[in-house]
Amino acid sequence: MTMLTLNKDTMAVVKEQDVVPLRNRVKEYATKIGMGLVNQTKLITAASELVRNMLKYAKGGKVFIEVVSKGRENGIRLVFEDKGPGISDVALAMKDGYSTGKSLGLGLPGARRLVSEFDIQSTPGKGTTVTVIKWKNG
């Protein structure tokens, strides 16, 4: 089944204070498609984790926010794109409790648990792109 993009927005995130407006924008989009509060909270929390990674390891990047639809289902797709150092071992980075920084190591695996679809592409030296989708009822 093909996926359609209905509405699109881009935000640059380069400093800590950019996180709050990003969360608000994601919330606006999720509210617009009628996503329930629990799913909204999960999506925004996942976005918060991913954008924090982007700031911490890649000094920022771009976030694409889209309303997508597949069949009768609507959802929000978020793409986090950075040109940072990349992740050399993606499988390891997706493990609970693994962190090269001082954090709890919940960011990537936690974000994956909170969304419906999760994809990560990373090339060391080039950057990382994380794509997540949360379906309205998913």
Partner: peptide
């Protein structure tokens, strides 16, 4: 704590 936040925290693993 809001219920949605509690649900999210547990799924996040915290």
């Amino acid at each position: 704590m809001q219920p949605a936040v509690a649900i999210t925290l547990i799924e996040l693993g915290l």
